[in-house]
Design a protein around this nucleic acid. Sequence first.
RNA 1: GCCCUGGUGGUGGAACUGGUAGACACGCAGGACUUAAAAUCCUGUUCGCCGCAACGCGAGUGCGGGUUCAAUUCCCGCCUGGGGCACCA
Length: 934
Amino acid sequence: MEYDFRKIEKEWQAQWKQNGAYRVKNDFSKPKCYVLDMFPYPSGAGLHVGHPLGYIASDIYSRYKRLKGFNVLHPMGYDAFGLPAEQYAIEHGVHPAKSTVQNIDTFRKQLDNIGFCYDWDREVRTCEPGYYKWTQWIFLQLFNSFFNRATRKAEPISELTAEFEKNGNTGHACPGDASISFTAEQWKGYTEKEKQDVLMNYRLAFCGYGEVNWCEALGTVLANDEVVNGVSERGGHPVVKKKLRQWYLRITEYADRLLEGLETIEFSEAMKEMQTNWIGKSYGAEIDFKIVSGESSGVSEQVTAHTSPLTVYTTRPDTIFGVDFMVIAPEHELIESITTPGQKQAVEEYITYVKSRSDRERQAEKKISGCFTGAYAVNPFNGKQIPIWISEYVLAGYGTGAIMGVPCGDERDHKFAKHFNIPITNIIGEQYNGVDANPTKDAKLENSEFLDGVVMRDAIGIVNAKLEEMGIGKKKVNYKMRDAAFSRQRYWGEPFPIQWKNGVAVPLNETELPLLLPEVDSYSPGPEGEGPLANIPAWVAKELETNTMPGYAGSSWYFLRYMDPHNTETFCDRKLSDYWNQVDLYIGGTEHAVGHLLYSRMWTKVLFDLGHIGFDEPFRKLLNQGMIQGSSRFVYRLKGTQKFVSLGLINNKTYELDQTDPIRVDVNFVDGVELDLEAFKKWRNGEYANAEFILEDGKYICGSEVEKMSKSKFNTVNPDDLVDKFGADTFRMYEMFLGPVDQSKPWDTKGIEGVHRFLKKLWRLFFDEVKGKIWTDEKATAEELKVLHRTIRKIEEDTERFSFNTAVSAFMICVNELSDLKCHKREILEPLVIMVTSYAPHISEELWKALGNENSVLDAAFPTYEEKYTIESSKEYPVSINGKVRTNINIALDATAEQVQEITLANELVQKWMEGKALKKFIFVKGKMINVVI
RNA sequence: GCCCUGGUGGUGGAACUGGUAGACACGCAGGACUUAAAAUCCUGUUCGCCGCAACGCGAGUGCGGGUUCAAUUCCCGCCUGGGGCACCA
């Protein structure tokens, strides 16, 4: 009997589907385990081998937990709103809903091929009204809430208005605009519009104005990565900043909770660090500097004082005497009023230049640029006049959009000063070498008047106190994180359940949800950068919001919907969210480190605060999967010919690389690096049918390069092909065998044979080609039990710590050893099959049934490790002389240190190496090693 | 530029808390079975040197230093691949 994986896999998949083997019941009597994959965006390209890496890992873990007796929720769905479908619609006129459904069908077929244990009855699609009704509902929760800084949680906005009626806003500083302040009397006197404008500054979902990348020629807003060097990626049209009305989520109010929450969840240290840095909490001070505008004209200087001060944010107020210049963002509102006539033109030119630059370009730019405004700030402590510059490296959105430049203590300031020949004041004496800035906090201050001799670290508090005393500054906690832009001028997203009445945003009634996304004739942008919904007269007539929600809206709460996917009364029944609770294991890529993961954490906290769920962190444990990269293959065409040169002939300089055009070829007809000439000639409808080849050793060898796996690079490998050739079980195990699940690596199909051979070898423990079934009910030997129990321990350990690659190799070792022992005993094989189940379910179910079991192996009990079978009495100790291993000595494990030393020193080889020299030190680590130091 | 992360044989990787570097596979080489092939099995395979041989010597985990009886593992400096940087998902 041969291992006929095609037949086995097809039969069992049908069987499992038929009897609902993966249907999950809300069985509260069992311990639960929630294992979740980050759901995919169903792109038109379908699944490539990179996608299933995490899915296989989570599938193995889910099945493992099921064998361990848990009720496992393991669902899958689709993040189905998104830009690509809309772009496709613009180009091909196909409605995004239609292309999305088609793509989902493709994804589903591909996923089914691999034999996942998803409960498809719980599938969610974020673009379906039954789902986005609740996305809209949660938006209304956000809209109707504010963050109470006293209780540190979200509360209904109605409680805030009640409070305003009584005490004005004295107890609730306004997060949106700190200058807003009113008494109860004033509040009561406000018009409805005025009240709503105030409340907008408190709401967790609020409307404001923000800058976007505006492309006039395309009439649309572009993402940062659609903008290259100031022009649109498509078409190369100019892109400028434009202010548009936008929705935002007030995530900054949750900054501290998001930071604190990190301590309660198991994310990698790297991930926590990234989120911490993103939130970017810093302690510093805001300092007001008086401004004077001066036109230096020879001897006399005409100076005019300016009314509003320049407020800077700094984390280092201790360096106040080292300030040699100020830098303000090119968007800073003071620029217009402080720029001197002489500098006006230069400033305007500089601002025009900056407008064409993205934030990222501005920060990444190595070349220093800037422009003097002509104005000076006055150091409040010593009256020194400090020139005010504009530079692109200061961003308007961070702090106050203005910094004080301290060149001796900050590298970027230092380069700026050197570049513009601004004299540098040294306030740290020898600690500054004149060449590089020194950001130390431990130096003693010099040239700092009342701070001279004070250690910088201690000076911070002194300066802060002084600033507050003088009324020109205050301590300030600052966050790098900004409120999250929550609207897009696009079609394919959730409509906002908002109507605009006389400039006031009025939420729809809950009973009016879902507000359905209407049909449109054209997916092109609306007037003035508005979304396509602005093109629909009926929509506009109802005064409905024309923006739609961004991609991350639906994904911010989907893990809750899986618990109760068909509920039409509520987004998720509280009883069910109490049972299923947090996601126990969440698997996905690091690319979501600061986007999706922060937003969903915030939404969870809001829903918790408002009492809709009982936990405030969504993901108890996060496992990041590495990215599978493509390995592209190149052929080298001699310029202007149809002749292709093999790589070796370029490497040995028979031909030069720059004589050729390197062309990517489809990796699927390259075996390793050897090109299949016939397949290449037939490729792309015979585009290369007339190709001639200059071979080496009768072969054409391709060049290779590791890059992102993508259709356009012809380096994608489709899992379907591999499943067809080797089977799902082989494919699953091979993906795991490739390496640690959290590490990125290029895909290489070559090694898959090894895993396939392993499964065949496993099969042959049960069946012989000629004799058929060969397993027996004989009693297992001690040796065989040792092999089994070592494997149980290893598989359990490795699966628990997500080390799936070493688990696969442990299976290989086990099967190799059992084959060597010619062990065909049920007592050994049956537990082995149960263990293999989570990794290779199809073959396991088949072998399980062959052993005569009636029930499914999916619900078998994971074997229990028993130490008594694996205990060793002695160990082959490696013996080092001065750290170099020279020999091995077998010593009983219960030998004492003295005995070990005696045995070791008596050893002939050890004596030879010691050459009669005296023993300096004897190191013995029980169960590990021996080191003799001489 | 900033933040995070990786770098070990020809290849993917193993070494879990500082304790035998290269498990397990791929590939390659040689052999067995076979008329032949496929399949399967066996042997070898980090590099260099000496050698009939090895249970022989030396080097070796991106590079350069350091700590230690002992470093792939800890520390400092550098080189380099990947991810993210707020409208791709």
